[in-house]
Design a protein around this nucleic acid. Structure first.
Lengths: 333, 333
DNA sequence: CTGTTAGCGCATTCAA
DNA sequence: TTGAATGCGCTAACAG
C-alpha cells in the first residue's frame, strides 16, 4: 500500500515515465531494467490498477451478472469464466440478483456498469432490450437471448435437445408426459417448449396442455407445480424438468408423493448432473458442457475487446447432451 | 460513458466541487440541487468509481477468494456475501483458485489485492501465515483458520457437531464407523477428526484407524477413498463425509458398490442439504446456516472498515445443525 | 453554502 | 531511449 512508480523512479534515478514504460513492456536501457526490477522487488511495488484505469479508460474488469449462485450450474459457469478471464489479465466483478425481480436485476447491472467494467457477461431474466440499449461496452448473454435485441450470445440447442429427450419418452410408450417449465417469455423455456411440441408432432401424438406447467424457475415453484400435476385426476406417467432448479423441485414432489422412479413415473432432468449420478436410479438428464460454454463466452469477449472488432453479433449455439440413466421406463399404452 | 461532473457542473453553472459535494450527500442550495438532479438525469451521469477510488484511496471493492464454486455451498456463500455487500455500497471481486495448488491460491490473492480492494474475504486452503502477514487491509477467513495467525474468522463448531453426529451413529450400535476426511492440516478437517475421536472416547469405544481416511476434499478423491474402505476385509458399517464434496464422493462409491443406505451402510453427510432432501432415503446431514455465515462475515467486515475499529481479532463460531434423515440404521453388535 | 486550487498514481504526448 | 509536462475524473482543503 502506498509505494508508487514515483518511489521506484526516485530510487533508480530515472523518471516515472521510464518506469511506467518498462512496466508496460516498453524498451528500456539494460541498466535501468535491472535497477527497476530490483526496486520493484525491494519495495514490493504493485501497479495501482485504479490509477491505471483512470488513465487508460480500461479497467480490466469484467462484470458478471447472474441470478443467485445457489445452483451449481451458475456457480460452475462463473468460476469457469473467472478462471479464463484471469488468464487474460482480467478480474471479475460478480453480481447476483433476485430472480424474477426486474428492479433488482436492473439495479445490479447499473451497479456493475458504474465500476467501469470493460465488458458485461449477463444471464438475463427480466432484462429487456431497453435496459441494455444504451450500453456501449460489449455484452455477452448466456443461456438466453433478448427478443429484438441483437447481442452476442452463447446458448444451448434447446429445441433440438428437448425434442430428443421428449421423443425418448414417447418412444418408451408414454403419452401423458408432463413438462415442468419456466415462464415461456424467457427464451430457453420457450424453446424447450417448442422442442416438446415438436416431438409430439413428429410422433403424431396429441398435446395435452394440462400436463404443461409454467412457473418461476425455482425449486419451490417447481415443487408446487409438480404437486398439482400429480394430483390431477389422470396424472402424467412421465415428467421433464426444464432446468436444474425445476428438476430438483420435481424430484422433491415425486418423493413427497411416495412415488418411485421409474416404476411409478419416468423422469428426465436438465443440468442436474451432480444429482443424477448419485440418485437411485441413475437419472437421465440433459447436460450442457460448462467448460465449452465458458470458453466460448470468454473467447467471444476477448475478440470484442479488440477495438478493431466490429463484426456482426454472434449467436453461438452449443450442443447439449442427453445422458442416459435409468429413470425412463418402458410402458404399455 | 464519458459524461463527468465537469459536464454537469457546466450545465448547471456551478463548480465541480458543488456537484461532487451534492453527489456525496452534502448540503447544497435547493435551486442547485434541483438543477443538478435534472442534469444528472439528462446526461445519464454515473459517477466514475475509478476516479473516486483514486482520490479517496477506497475502492468500495471487496475481494472474495474461494476454491472453485462447483459446490453449491461456496456458491451460496458468495452470493450471500455479495448481496449483503451490495446493500452497503460495495462491489465484489471474485476469484477462484485450484484447490490444493498453493501457487494458484497465492497468485489469486495477489491478483485481487492489486485491484486495491478495501477488504479480503478468504476461504484458505494452502494459505500460510506468511502469505498474509504483510497485508494491511482487513481479512476475514471463512470456514477455516490459519495456524499461528491471528485473524478474524467465521467458522462452524466443528468439534462439537461432528462429535454429536458420530455419537448418534455409535448409539445406533455401530462400531466400525468410517470418516472420509480432508487432510488434517486444514483446521476444519482436523477439528472434525477431533470431534470423531471425542465421540469414541466418550463412549469408551476403540478408534480403528483403518476407517479414517484422509485425502483432498474433492468428489473424485472421496470416491476413491470410499472405494478403498468398502473393499477392506471388514468394511465399515457406517460412514461420515466430512464436507459436501466428500459426502458426494462417498455416496457415489456406495452406489457403485450396489449398497443400500441405510440397510447396508449408514451415512451422515456434511453441507449437502440439496442432495439430502431428494435422496432416497432422506439423508442425515450436518448443515451450516449460510445466511448466518454471510451476515456475520459482512457485519465483521463493515466494522473493520470503520477506521476507528482496531479491536482484537474475532473468531466467530457458528453452530451447525444435525438434520435428521433416515440414513442411519440401528444395528446389533 | 460555494468556488478555487491542488493532487491522487499512472500513461502518454512531445522534445531532447 | 529518456524525461518534463499534462490530464484522466474526482474529492478535499481552504478561502470567500
Amino acid at each position: 500500500m502506498g509505494v508508487t512508480i514515483k518511489d521506484i523512479a526516485r530510487h533508480c534515478h530515472v523518471s516515472t515515465s521510464t518506469v511506467s514504460k518498462y512496466i508496460n513492456g516498453g524498451k528500456v536501457r539494460e541498466k535501468n531494467k535491472i535497477a527497476i526490477d530490483e526496486a520493484i522487488q525491494l519495495y514490493n511495488f504493485k501497479t495501482n490498477a485504479i490509477a491505471r484505469g483512470l488513465k487508460t479508460k480500461r479497467s480490466s474488469l469484467v462484470g458478471i451478472v447472474v441470478p443467485t449462485l445457489d445452483s451449481a450450474f451458475f456457480g460452475n459457469i462463473v468460476s469457469g469464466i473467472e478462471a479464463l478471464l484471469y488468464k487474460n489479465g482480467f478480474s471479475s466483478i460478480i453480481s447476483t440478483f433476485i430472480p424474477g425481480d426486474p428492479v433488482s436485476e436492473n439495479r445490479k447491472i447499473e451497479f456493475v456498469l458504474e465500476r467501469s467494467v470493460d465488458a458485461l457477461v449477463l444471464v438475463p431474466i427480466c432484462t429487456k432490450r431497453l435496459d441494455l440499449e444504451g450500453i456501449t461496452i460489449p455484452i455477452i448473454l448466456i443461456d438466453r437471448v433478448i427478443d429484438d435485441f441483437a447481442c452476442d450470445s452463447v446458448t444451448p440447442n434447446n429445441i433440438e435437445i428437448v425434442e430428443k429427450a421428449t421423443s425418448k419418452i414417447i418412444e418408451a410408450g408414454h403419452k401423458r408426459i408432463a413438462l415442468v417449465n419456466g415462464f415461456d417469455n424467457i427464451t430457453p423455456f420457450r424453446d424447450r417448449l417448442k422442442g416438446y411440441y415438436s416431438a409430439f408432432d413428429k410422433h403424431n401424438l396429441p398435446i395435452i396442455k394440462e400436463y404443461i406447467s409454467f412457473g418461476e424457475a425455482s425449486v419451490s415453484e417447481a415443487y408446487k407445480m409438480m404437486n398439482r400435476l400429480l394430483e390431477l385426476r389422470v396424472p402424467p406417467t412421465a415428467v421433464i424438468g426444464a432446468n436444474s432448479s425445476l428438476s430438483l423441485g420435481v424430484l422433491l414432489s415425486i418423493k413427497e408423493h411416495g412415488l418411485l422412479i421409474p416404476e411409478d413415473i419416468s423422469f428426465i432432468g436438465f443440468d442436474c448432473y451432480d444429482l443424477a449420478i448419485v440418485y437411485r436410479p441413475l437419472l437421465t438428464t440433459i447436460e450442457q458442457d460448462i467448460q465449452q460454454i465458458c470458453e466460448n463466452v470468454v473467447g467471444l469477449l476477448l475478440r470484442r475487446l479488440q477495438k478493431s472488432d466490429s463484426s456482426p453479433k454472434e449467436s453461438i449455439v452449443l450442443k447439449a447432451t442427453l445422458i442416459e440413466g435409468n429413470s425412463v421406463a418402458q410402458i404399455n399404452g
